[in-house]
Amino acid sequence: MMKKVFGRPQSMKKNIFHYCAGCGHSIAHRLIAEVIDELDIRGITIGVPPAGCAVLAYNYFDIDMIEAQHGRGPATATGIKRILPDRVVFSYQGDGDLAAIGIAESFHAANRGENITVVFMNNAVYGMTGGQMAPTSIMGQKTTTSPAGRNNVLDGYPIQVSEIFSLLPGTAYIERCTVNSPASILKTRKAIRKAFQYQIDGLGFSLIEILSPCPTNWKMTPIESCRWIDEVMSKSFPLGVIKDLPAAAKGEQKKGGPRHDG
């Protein structure tokens, strides 16, 4: 009998993703599902999907899921986790969800050090509503609501969520990753796994920011989008571990390790 080397994760339903070609959501979904399988936590994991493109995440994840209103995922996740502290609870949020309408809920969940995991999909644009400016749109980026390009006088600056959240003593682990290449995808998988493991170990709030391609609204091909992340977007949002308190505490800090230790 041949050994199966690739298949659908147990924690995914047999549905075809509705996401656009080249979108990062499907990859991120799959990575989360793989990690859930690997840690054997399908039965105790509760996911909180957001409003936005990923609003239908519960059509793909075969785990318990409760949809949150736009931006309120971390509040809803807080309610669940406080009542069921031995469950694994994660919210899945876009840049508008986390850094604009839900900045208060996200920031305060982080500040309380809720023992939850936030998967933060940053694609520098509002995807579902058709390409409007996001709080993480980079300087000069043209969107349907910043037609002349993002301008600090009119629009302010892109918000560096991971760096800002890393200053909160309540946060344990924050890493910024991307999914634009096989290598970066594997790195992101490791980061998600670490975040879930930390949560299981009761180590506190973790946030995995994923720079995610949005070819449709960036008006690029998928390949151009992947390149744009490397060449442009990651200059505003540098990749790497931003904070890893548990690792720092263990003295496992390596080169390129935490820049902030809270």
């Binding site: 409760i66 949150a68 809803t76 309610g79 406080r82 009542i83 069921l84 809920e105 305060h108």
Partner: peptide
């Protein structure tokens, strides 16, 4: 036993915490 009190950052956050806690089975 099992009591949870949270002073939320806003009324908006409070009601969404209640949603989570209610879904998780607590009288909220």
């Amino acid at each position: 036993e099992g009591g949870v009190f949270i002073q939320s950052e806003s009324e908006v956050a409070a009601i969404h915490m209640v949603i989570g806690a209610s879904a998780a089975g607590a009288r909220s």
